[in-house]
Amino acid sequence: MIIGHGGNIYKLAKDLGVTPSDITDMSSNLNPLGPPEGLMEHLASKLSTIVSLPEVDAGHIKELLAAKYGISSSSILAGNGTTEFIYAIPRALDTKRALIVGPTYADYRDACEMYGADADFLLTRKEDAFSMAPQDIAEAADGYDTVFLCNPNNPTGTLVAPEAIKTMAESRPDIRFVIDESYLPFACDAYGQSVARYGLDNVVTLNSMSKVFRIPGLRVGFLMAPEAIIAEFSKYVLPWCVNAMAQAAVGFILSGGKAIDTFLEKTRAYVKGEKDRFVAALNAMDGIIPYGAETYFVICELTGENTAAGLWAALAEEAVLIRDCTNFIGIEGEFVRFSLKDKETNDRLLGLLKKHVK
Protein backbone atom coordinates (compact mmCIF):
# COMPACT_ATOMS: atom_id res chain seq x y z
CA MET A 1 0.00 0.00 0.00
CA ILE A 2 1.82 3.09 -1.23
CA ILE A 3 -1.00 5.52 -0.43
CA GLY A 4 -2.48 5.50 3.07
CA HIS A 5 0.52 6.07 5.32
CA GLY A 6 1.10 9.28 7.22
CA GLY A 7 3.48 12.01 6.12
CA ASN A 8 2.12 12.96 2.70
CA ILE A 9 3.11 16.59 3.07
CA TYR A 10 3.67 16.94 -0.67
CA LYS A 11 0.04 16.31 -1.61
CA LEU A 12 -1.30 18.59 1.11
CA ALA A 13 1.12 21.36 0.14
CA LYS A 14 0.01 21.05 -3.49
CA ASP A 15 -3.66 21.17 -2.46
CA LEU A 16 -3.10 24.30 -0.35
CA GLY A 17 -0.81 25.99 -2.86
CA VAL A 18 2.11 26.18 -0.41
CA THR A 19 5.53 24.57 -0.13
CA PRO A 20 6.05 21.29 1.79
CA SER A 21 8.08 23.20 4.39
CA ASP A 22 4.93 25.18 5.22
CA ILE A 23 3.18 22.01 6.41
CA THR A 24 3.40 21.00 10.06
CA ASP A 25 3.56 17.22 9.85
CA MET A 26 2.19 15.59 12.99
CA SER A 27 1.27 12.40 11.14
CA SER A 28 4.74 10.88 10.69
CA ASN A 29 6.37 9.10 13.60
CA LEU A 30 9.79 10.74 13.72
CA ASN A 31 11.98 11.95 16.58
CA PRO A 32 10.91 15.50 17.52
CA LEU A 33 14.49 16.29 18.57
CA GLY A 34 15.73 15.73 15.03
CA PRO A 35 18.89 13.95 13.84
CA PRO A 36 21.80 13.70 16.30
CA GLU A 37 24.13 16.70 16.45
CA GLY A 38 26.89 16.51 13.88
CA LEU A 39 25.18 13.99 11.60
CA MET A 40 24.28 16.44 8.85
CA GLU A 41 27.80 17.86 8.78
CA HIS A 42 29.22 14.35 8.66
CA LEU A 43 27.02 13.48 5.69
CA ALA A 44 28.04 16.67 3.91
CA SER A 45 31.67 15.63 4.28
CA LYS A 46 30.85 12.21 2.77
CA LEU A 47 29.11 13.50 -0.34
CA SER A 48 32.03 12.47 -2.53
CA THR A 49 31.37 8.79 -1.71
CA ILE A 50 28.36 8.73 -4.03
CA VAL A 51 30.69 8.46 -7.05
CA SER A 52 31.63 4.92 -5.98
CA LEU A 53 29.64 1.82 -5.13
CA PRO A 54 28.96 1.35 -1.41
CA GLU A 55 29.99 -1.77 0.49
CA VAL A 56 27.91 -4.46 -1.18
CA ASP A 57 26.48 -6.03 2.00
CA ALA A 58 26.94 -3.04 4.36
CA GLY A 59 29.20 -5.34 6.39
CA HIS A 60 30.82 -2.56 8.40
CA ILE A 61 27.60 -1.22 9.85
CA LYS A 62 26.34 -4.75 10.51
CA GLU A 63 29.41 -5.35 12.66
CA LEU A 64 28.83 -2.08 14.53
CA LEU A 65 25.20 -3.00 15.20
CA ALA A 66 26.13 -6.53 16.26
CA ALA A 67 28.41 -5.06 18.94
CA LYS A 68 25.51 -2.96 20.26
CA TYR A 69 23.21 -5.96 20.60
CA GLY A 70 25.89 -8.39 21.72
CA ILE A 71 25.17 -10.79 18.87
CA SER A 72 27.06 -12.06 15.80
CA SER A 73 27.04 -9.96 12.64
CA SER A 74 26.17 -13.18 10.78
CA SER A 75 22.75 -12.89 12.44
CA ILE A 76 22.08 -9.48 10.85
CA LEU A 77 21.01 -8.25 7.44
CA ALA A 78 21.02 -4.59 6.41
CA GLY A 79 18.43 -3.33 3.95
CA ASN A 80 16.67 -0.43 2.31
CA GLY A 81 14.52 0.25 5.37
CA THR A 82 12.54 -2.35 7.33
CA THR A 83 9.93 -2.19 4.56
CA GLU A 84 12.24 -4.22 2.33
CA PHE A 85 12.31 -7.00 4.92
CA ILE A 86 8.59 -6.86 5.72
CA TYR A 87 7.80 -7.55 2.08
CA ALA A 88 10.37 -10.36 1.97
CA ILE A 89 8.94 -12.15 5.01
CA PRO A 90 6.22 -14.22 3.25
CA ARG A 91 8.78 -15.52 0.74
CA ALA A 92 11.71 -16.04 3.11
CA LEU A 93 9.61 -17.73 5.81
CA ASP A 94 7.33 -19.46 3.28
CA THR A 95 4.37 -18.02 5.16
CA LYS A 96 1.06 -19.69 4.44
CA ARG A 97 -1.08 -18.34 7.29
CA ALA A 98 -0.12 -15.26 9.28
CA LEU A 99 -1.64 -13.87 12.46
CA ILE A 100 -1.24 -10.12 12.86
CA VAL A 101 -1.73 -8.54 16.30
CA GLY A 102 -3.66 -5.37 15.58
CA PRO A 103 -4.75 -2.76 14.96
CA THR A 104 -1.30 -2.15 13.56
CA TYR A 105 0.90 -1.16 10.64
CA ALA A 106 -0.77 -2.05 7.33
CA ASP A 107 2.30 -3.33 5.52
CA TYR A 108 2.34 -6.66 7.38
CA ARG A 109 -0.99 -7.59 5.82
CA ASP A 110 -0.11 -6.02 2.47
CA ALA A 111 3.09 -8.08 2.29
CA CYS A 112 1.16 -11.28 2.94
CA GLU A 113 -1.46 -10.42 0.33
CA MET A 114 1.22 -9.57 -2.24
CA TYR A 115 2.63 -13.11 -2.04
CA GLY A 116 -0.59 -15.06 -1.55
CA ALA A 117 -0.33 -15.76 2.17
CA ASP A 118 -3.52 -15.71 4.21
CA ALA A 119 -3.49 -13.07 6.93
CA ASP A 120 -5.88 -12.77 9.87
CA PHE A 121 -5.96 -10.24 12.67
CA LEU A 122 -5.97 -10.79 16.41
CA LEU A 123 -7.41 -7.49 17.54
CA THR A 124 -6.85 -5.73 20.83
CA ARG A 125 -9.70 -3.59 22.20
CA LYS A 126 -9.89 -0.01 23.36
CA GLU A 127 -11.60 -1.29 26.53
CA ASP A 128 -8.30 -3.00 27.38
CA ALA A 129 -6.26 0.06 26.37
CA PHE A 130 -5.26 -1.89 23.23
CA SER A 131 -3.14 -4.34 25.22
CA MET A 132 -3.14 -8.15 25.17
CA ALA A 133 -1.32 -10.73 27.24
CA PRO A 134 1.38 -12.59 25.25
CA GLN A 135 0.04 -15.93 26.43
CA ASP A 136 -3.29 -15.06 24.79
CA ILE A 137 -1.43 -14.37 21.54
CA ALA A 138 0.33 -17.73 21.79
CA GLU A 139 -2.97 -19.54 22.37
CA ALA A 140 -4.64 -17.74 19.47
CA ALA A 141 -1.81 -18.71 17.11
CA ASP A 142 -2.98 -22.31 16.61
CA GLY A 143 -3.00 -23.09 12.91
CA TYR A 144 -0.72 -20.18 11.96
CA ASP A 145 2.93 -20.36 10.94
CA THR A 146 3.86 -16.68 11.35
CA VAL A 147 2.88 -14.04 13.91
CA PHE A 148 3.50 -10.30 13.48
CA LEU A 149 3.84 -8.10 16.57
CA CYS A 150 4.87 -4.45 16.44
CA ASN A 151 6.47 -3.55 19.78
CA PRO A 152 5.77 -0.80 20.75
CA ASN A 153 2.78 -0.92 18.49
CA ASN A 154 1.81 1.60 15.84
CA PRO A 155 -0.70 3.27 16.17
CA THR A 156 -1.62 2.36 19.76
CA GLY A 157 1.79 2.73 21.42
CA THR A 158 1.36 -0.35 23.61
CA LEU A 159 4.51 -2.17 24.74
CA VAL A 160 5.13 -5.82 25.65
CA ALA A 161 8.08 -6.66 27.91
CA PRO A 162 10.86 -8.60 26.13
CA GLU A 163 10.78 -11.36 28.74
CA ALA A 164 7.10 -11.93 28.00
CA ILE A 165 7.79 -12.14 24.27
CA LYS A 166 10.60 -14.63 24.96
CA THR A 167 8.24 -16.82 26.99
CA MET A 168 5.59 -16.58 24.27
CA ALA A 169 8.01 -17.58 21.50
CA GLU A 170 9.50 -20.43 23.52
CA SER A 171 6.03 -21.80 24.18
CA ARG A 172 5.34 -22.04 20.43
CA PRO A 173 8.55 -23.28 18.73
CA ASP A 174 6.46 -24.33 15.73
CA ILE A 175 5.63 -20.69 14.90
CA ARG A 176 7.89 -17.88 13.65
CA PHE A 177 7.41 -14.56 15.46
CA VAL A 178 8.24 -11.32 13.67
CA ILE A 179 8.88 -8.58 16.25
CA ASP A 180 9.06 -5.08 14.80
CA GLU A 181 11.04 -2.91 17.23
CA SER A 182 11.08 0.25 15.10
CA TYR A 183 9.79 2.38 17.98
CA LEU A 184 11.51 0.63 20.89
CA PRO A 185 14.30 3.26 21.30
CA PHE A 186 11.65 5.81 22.32
CA ALA A 187 10.52 3.65 25.23
CA CYS A 188 13.69 2.11 26.64
CA ASP A 189 17.28 1.06 25.95
CA ALA A 190 16.51 -0.72 22.68
CA TYR A 191 19.82 -2.58 22.53
CA GLY A 192 19.53 -3.91 26.06
CA GLN A 193 15.79 -4.65 25.91
CA SER A 194 15.54 -6.16 22.43
CA VAL A 195 14.33 -9.72 21.99
CA ALA A 196 17.16 -10.11 19.46
CA ARG A 197 19.56 -10.57 22.37
CA TYR A 198 17.92 -13.89 23.26
CA GLY A 199 18.92 -15.54 19.97
CA LEU A 200 15.67 -17.48 19.74
CA ASP A 201 15.40 -19.93 16.85
CA ASN A 202 11.90 -18.81 15.83
CA VAL A 203 12.12 -15.02 16.25
CA VAL A 204 12.86 -12.41 13.58
CA THR A 205 13.53 -8.89 14.89
CA LEU A 206 13.28 -5.69 12.84
CA ASN A 207 15.24 -2.54 13.68
CA SER A 208 14.63 0.84 12.04
CA MET A 209 17.09 3.73 12.04
CA SER A 210 14.58 6.08 10.41
CA LYS A 211 12.39 6.97 13.37
CA VAL A 212 14.58 7.63 16.37
CA PHE A 213 17.46 9.19 14.42
CA ARG A 214 15.12 11.02 12.02
CA ILE A 215 16.68 9.87 8.77
CA PRO A 216 13.68 8.38 6.90
CA GLY A 217 14.86 9.71 3.56
CA LEU A 218 17.99 7.57 3.71
CA ARG A 219 16.00 4.31 3.97
CA VAL A 220 17.99 1.99 6.19
CA GLY A 221 16.90 -0.81 8.51
CA PHE A 222 18.07 -4.15 9.86
CA LEU A 223 16.77 -7.66 10.33
CA MET A 224 18.12 -9.95 13.06
CA ALA A 225 17.48 -13.67 13.21
CA PRO A 226 19.21 -17.07 13.61
CA GLU A 227 21.65 -17.85 10.81
CA ALA A 228 19.34 -20.45 9.26
CA ILE A 229 16.61 -17.80 8.82
CA ILE A 230 19.18 -15.23 7.66
CA ALA A 231 20.15 -17.65 4.89
CA GLU A 232 16.56 -17.73 3.65
CA PHE A 233 16.22 -13.93 3.72
CA SER A 234 19.55 -13.54 1.95
CA LYS A 235 17.97 -15.03 -1.17
CA TYR A 236 15.79 -11.92 -1.46
CA VAL A 237 18.22 -9.15 -0.43
CA LEU A 238 19.66 -7.20 -3.36
CA PRO A 239 23.35 -6.24 -3.53
CA TRP A 240 24.13 -2.62 -2.67
CA CYS A 241 20.68 -2.19 -1.15
CA VAL A 242 22.02 0.26 1.47
CA ASN A 243 23.36 3.33 -0.30
CA ALA A 244 26.62 5.08 0.53
CA MET A 245 25.06 8.00 2.40
CA ALA A 246 22.89 5.67 4.47
CA GLN A 247 25.94 3.59 5.40
CA ALA A 248 27.82 6.78 6.33
CA ALA A 249 24.95 7.93 8.54
CA VAL A 250 24.64 4.61 10.37
CA GLY A 251 28.40 4.39 10.79
CA PHE A 252 28.40 7.84 12.41
CA ILE A 253 25.50 6.93 14.69
CA LEU A 254 26.77 3.54 15.82
CA SER A 255 30.29 4.89 16.39
CA GLY A 256 29.03 7.93 18.26
CA GLY A 257 29.58 6.53 21.73
CA LYS A 258 28.50 8.69 24.66
CA ALA A 259 27.15 11.48 22.44
CA ILE A 260 24.61 9.15 20.83
CA ASP A 261 23.77 7.54 24.18
CA THR A 262 23.06 11.01 25.55
CA PHE A 263 20.94 11.84 22.49
CA LEU A 264 18.81 8.74 23.08
CA GLU A 265 18.49 9.46 26.80
CA LYS A 266 17.42 13.04 26.07
CA THR A 267 14.93 11.77 23.51
CA ARG A 268 13.30 9.40 25.98
CA ALA A 269 13.19 12.03 28.72
CA TYR A 270 11.69 14.62 26.39
CA VAL A 271 9.15 12.17 24.98
CA LYS A 272 7.92 11.15 28.42
CA GLY A 273 7.68 14.68 29.79
CA GLU A 274 6.07 16.24 26.74
CA LYS A 275 3.71 13.31 26.18
CA ASP A 276 2.51 13.45 29.79
CA ARG A 277 1.94 17.21 29.50
CA PHE A 278 0.14 16.87 26.16
CA VAL A 279 -2.09 14.02 27.36
CA ALA A 280 -3.00 15.95 30.52
CA ALA A 281 -4.14 18.85 28.34
CA LEU A 282 -6.22 16.48 26.19
CA ASN A 283 -7.82 14.97 29.29
CA ALA A 284 -9.06 18.44 30.22
CA MET A 285 -10.87 18.80 26.88
CA ASP A 286 -14.30 17.59 25.81
CA GLY A 287 -14.84 15.47 22.73
CA ILE A 288 -11.48 13.67 22.74
CA ILE A 289 -10.11 10.72 24.75
CA PRO A 290 -6.36 9.96 24.69
CA TYR A 291 -5.07 6.45 25.30
CA GLY A 292 -1.87 5.74 27.20
CA ALA A 293 1.21 5.01 25.12
CA GLU A 294 4.89 4.17 25.58
CA THR A 295 5.85 6.25 22.56
CA TYR A 296 5.80 9.87 21.42
CA PHE A 297 2.71 9.41 19.27
CA VAL A 298 -0.70 9.47 20.94
CA ILE A 299 -3.85 7.80 19.66
CA CYS A 300 -7.12 9.49 20.57
CA GLU A 301 -10.80 8.69 20.20
CA LEU A 302 -13.13 11.46 19.11
CA THR A 303 -16.57 11.47 20.70
CA GLY A 304 -19.90 13.14 20.07
CA GLU A 305 -20.32 14.52 16.58
CA ASN A 306 -16.57 14.80 15.98
CA THR A 307 -15.16 12.60 13.23
CA ALA A 308 -11.61 11.67 12.27
CA ALA A 309 -12.15 12.74 8.67
CA GLY A 310 -13.66 16.02 9.75
CA LEU A 311 -10.84 16.85 12.16
CA TRP A 312 -8.23 15.82 9.59
CA ALA A 313 -9.78 18.17 7.03
CA ALA A 314 -10.11 21.06 9.49
CA LEU A 315 -6.47 20.79 10.56
CA ALA A 316 -5.32 20.34 6.97
CA GLU A 317 -6.84 23.75 6.21
CA GLU A 318 -4.58 25.07 8.97
CA ALA A 319 -1.59 23.40 7.23
CA VAL A 320 -1.33 20.78 9.99
CA LEU A 321 -1.21 17.11 9.00
CA ILE A 322 -2.42 14.44 11.43
CA ARG A 323 -3.16 10.73 11.02
CA ASP A 324 -6.74 9.64 10.44
CA CYS A 325 -6.70 6.12 11.93
CA THR A 326 -10.01 4.90 10.59
CA ASN A 327 -8.26 2.92 7.84
CA PHE A 328 -6.43 0.75 10.39
CA ILE A 329 -8.12 -2.66 10.46
CA GLY A 330 -9.63 -3.16 13.90
CA ILE A 331 -10.09 0.51 14.76
CA GLU A 332 -13.75 0.85 15.66
CA GLY A 333 -14.86 4.42 16.07
CA GLU A 334 -13.37 7.78 15.23
CA PHE A 335 -9.64 7.68 16.06
CA VAL A 336 -6.76 10.00 15.18
CA ARG A 337 -3.05 9.90 16.01
CA PHE A 338 -0.77 12.80 16.83
CA SER A 339 3.02 12.56 16.61
CA LEU A 340 4.46 15.08 19.03
CA LYS A 341 6.97 17.76 18.05
CA ASP A 342 8.55 20.63 20.00
CA LYS A 343 6.56 22.29 22.79
CA GLU A 344 5.57 25.30 20.69
CA THR A 345 4.21 23.12 17.89
CA ASN A 346 2.39 20.85 20.33
CA ASP A 347 0.81 23.88 22.00
CA ARG A 348 -0.35 25.14 18.62
CA LEU A 349 -2.00 21.78 17.99
CA LEU A 350 -3.70 21.91 21.38
CA GLY A 351 -5.07 25.34 20.50
CA LEU A 352 -6.39 24.06 17.18
CA LEU A 353 -7.99 21.07 18.87
CA LYS A 354 -9.82 23.38 21.27
CA LYS A 355 -11.02 25.29 18.22
CA HIS A 356 -12.16 22.33 16.13
CA VAL A 357 -13.15 19.59 18.61
CA LYS A 358 -16.54 20.20 20.17
Rank of each mutant, 00 (worst) to 15 (best):
A309M: 10
D15P: 06
S255C: 06
Y291F: 15
A269W: 04
S234Q: 12
A106G: 08
I288N: 03
V220T: 08
C112G: 08
G351V: 14
K166L: 02
E332D: 14
P162F: 08
A314F: 01
A196R: 00
I71A: 04
A259K: 14
L149M: 07
W312A: 08
D94G: 13
T24L: 15
A228K: 14
L47I: 09
D128E: 09
S131A: 08
L47S: 07
M168F: 14
L16K: 14
G70E: 09
V51L: 05
A117V: 07
V279T: 15
L99F: 13
S255A: 06
A141N: 10
V178K: 01
V271R: 00
D286V: 03
P35C: 07
V320I: 13
V237R: 04
A44C: 09
S255P: 06
A13N: 06
T124G: 08
D136R: 10
D110Q: 08
V18R: 06
I288S: 07
K68V: 05
T167W: 07
G304Q: 11
K235A: 06
G310W: 13
G143C: 10
L321G: 00
A140D: 12
E294G: 05
A228W: 08
K62T: 12
K235S: 05
L321P: 05
A309Q: 13
G6I: 10
L159K: 10
P290M: 04
K166C: 10
S75A: 13
A246P: 02
P216T: 14
R109V: 04
L238V: 13
C325M: 07
N207A: 01
P54G: 14
A319L: 02
I50D: 05
L123F: 15
A309Y: 14
D342G: 11
A88K: 10
L184P: 00
A313T: 12
L353A: 03
R277D: 08
Y108I: 02
R176Y: 15
S210I: 01
E163L: 10
K355Y: 09
L122C: 13
C325Q: 04
F263M: 06
E41A: 11
P90D: 12
F263T: 05
M224P: 06
D347L: 08
K126N: 10
T146Y: 02
S210Y: 00
T24F: 10
L123N: 12
E170N: 14
L122A: 12
T95N: 04
E63V: 13
I215L: 05
V56D: 05
L123M: 15
I331R: 02
H356V: 04
C188D: 10
A190C: 12
L12G: 04
G17A: 09
F130N: 01
E294H: 14
Y69I: 13
A196W: 01
N153H: 04
V178Q: 00
V204L: 00
V147A: 01
G6T: 12
S339R: 03
Y10L: 11
D286R: 13
G292R: 07
F335V: 04
Q193W: 12
S74A: 11
E227S: 15
G192W: 06
F213E: 01
K358P: 13
A106P: 15
E181W: 00
G217R: 11
P216Y: 14
P152T: 00
I331T: 06
A246Y: 01
G292D: 15
G157K: 03
T82M: 00
N327A: 09
F177A: 01
G116S: 11
P36K: 04
A259V: 11
H5D: 09
P152Y: 00
M1C: 08
A308I: 11
